[in-house]
Nucleic acid binder design. Structure first.
Lengths: 335, 335
DNA sequence: TATAATAGAACAAACGTTTGCTCAAAGAGG
DNA sequence: CCTCTTTGAGCAAACGTTTGTTCTATTATA
């Protein structure tokens, strides 16, 4: 690596003169200036980043730990974060591959490698660990609540989202609504189930079918359940499950939306692609990413100690929940 | 920020003793050792990363510039890269948002902020610029060919992929095959069109329908073209276009695969979700990411100057190209 | 008891920059 | 012709570590 000293020697000036030329500060004669610039180019001189950081304060870097960047949810979050960071900070990305130990290792690695803050997307790591990290650098976490200094939280109002979905089904005339989802292993499941129950009118019975999180799971449960009882609507805990249910319904000759109305959650791109297009609950994912980045920056700059955001989901109506009466309102809402 | 000096003062020892305690090297009495460790914890001491890098050589960081991480193609690539990097290097992620100027700025930013190498995913930046960067740090690019020192390239054999797809349609009995895709603005388009033409048998006429890259585009072109002429098969330049064509076909009462067989390209998750499931050409995306990371690391470590990889696509048969005769082979190949 | 080995700790140089200070030479003003 | 200002350049300290060297006090060996 070429250093300033090398260039100084070659051009027979002092290091400080080289520094002043290359940074454009201070007066240097045109003659030496040219000589120095020529040599710098010739030897592909790059100022040593770390040395620079010792005297000036360099560009902030922040770390992001996600389970799996290829999951659209996290890649959208990442987009939002990076868009907000823009030129204020660099983003170091790490996939935990859902391995708690790795997640811990990475967080420490980030802390010890100059990251000035960390965003943890959907951590399954112990609270204690997050707390420990937060003593050293600020942390933003998704989907959890900490009331601790130096930890900000970003959440979606899942209860409300589930309420919106279920309520929509009821309003367009479903006499009964079944809910696919709600294993108790994740907070989201519990919350969405809660919202579902809240929306049910007096006298309506809740039908909760514990389901996994993928298409196959939705498909299998639907195959079992749908023949046994006629439901007007189905609220599924995410789009994948909804697509599984949709597939099963079609195979069994149940028409969507005429016989059964289906709505998912997350509003992924898949919704637009299946037939009929799937209604869903939209999360402002990118906005949530931006908020996370903003919160972290604020904490790093020491302006604020903590922020907590609760984001509101919204209802996106597509053909899978079109009212049979050709409801104008519903039509309007279709993107 | 607490520094070693602070801790040294508080515990009335020299900085070097603190250093030796904290790094676990050299002999220090148990008494001072405990005192120092206690103070370090108490004040949340973090060794200054940049100072450390001045004397030891720290963890390598490399940069990744992609147009849009929320595009599944790039997020998968990223997965591969990061998986390969593992603990050997940190990954700084940057979205160019398809803005050439931003892409340039980012690359320079990376170079000047300690990145030891850069991976550029699908760059639209001028060759000269890539060349210029490569003088300073090694570069890996996708989908382009440079025969320059310090630049490695990763490519998919698009011609072969298109050949595979088209040939498959012909082999299962399509008397004619139409190709949706092939605007001349991107190399991939040109290459896939070339593969399509190569696969056509003597006497078969090429039908190339210039189409965009999204579902809507496929849908609109199909609506126009399909009624005018009866095709046995359709090879679409990507999955989205294929899904558009599929949708249009269904609406027009053209049965898939009975009346028309459709195959896409990229083998995205969408394929599994549409009805009928879509045959496609698979790219070993993650593997390509891993190769990129490996190539970069090799260049950084100075072991090799340049590597060029050409990856082979493979055919994934699903229901959208099932032979009408209930071909056993095809059945077998379905995931 | 004299000598050698060792433990424990400090000193100081080095890593590659930036920048305040100093200093000499040249030019300006009276 | 003498003093004052300006220009151009170097010196040296500082940033926060690491580590080879040195030094002293203690312990082990003969």
């Amino acid at each position: 690596m070429t250093t300033m000293r090398d260039i100084a020697k070659l051009s027979k000036v002092s290091v400080s003169t080289v520094s002043r030329v290359l940074s454009g500060k201070g007066r240097v004669s045109a003659e030496k200036r040219n000589e120095i610039i020529k040599l710098a180019n010739q030897f592909h001189y790059i100022p040593n980043y770390h040395a620079k950081c010792m005297t000036k304060t360099g560009v902030i870097t922040v770390g992001l730990v996600v389970p799996d960047i290829s999951n659209p949810f996290f890649s959208k979050i990442t987009m939002g974060i990076e868009a907000e960071l823009r030129d204020n900070a660099l983003l170091i990305l790490m996939n935990s591959f859902r391995d708690i130990e790795r997640e811990k290792r990475l967080s420490l690695l980030l802390r010890d490698n100059g990251a000035r803050g960390i965003i943890i997307g959907n951590s399954h790591v112990e609270d204690d660990f997050v707390f420990e990290i937060s003593k050293y650098i600020p942390v933003v976490v998704f989907d959890k609540e900490y009331n601790l200094p130096n930890i900000s939280t970003i959440k979606l109002d899942n209860v409300y989202g589930a309420y919106l979905a279920t309520n929509h089904l009821i309003e367009i005339g479903c006499p009964s609504v079944v809910h696919f989802g709600g294993f108790d292993d994740l907070d989201v499941s519990i919350q969405r189930r809660e919202g579902y129950k809240k929306a049910l009118r007096k006298g309506m019975q809740p039908y909760v079918i514990p389901t996994g999180y993928d298409e196959r799971s939705g498909y299998e449960k639907a195959k079992k359940i749908l023949p046994s009882k006629k439901f007007g609507g189905a609220f599924c805990m995410n789009d994948l499950v909804a697509i599984g249910v949709l597939k099963a319904a079609k195979e069994m000759g149940i028409r969507v939306p005429e016989d059964l109305k289906i709505i998912g959650f997350d509003d992924t791109e898949l919704c637009e692609v299946v037939t009929p297009p799937l209604s869903s609950i939209h999360q402002p994912i990118e906005e949530m990413g931006r908020a996370a980045a903003r919160a972290l920056l604020k904490m790093i700059e020491g302006e604020e100690s903590t922020r907590s955001y609760l984001f509101s989901p919204s209802l996106i109506v597509r053909s899978s929940t079109l009212s049979i009466r050709g409801d104008q309102d519903a039509k309007e809402e279709v993107r």
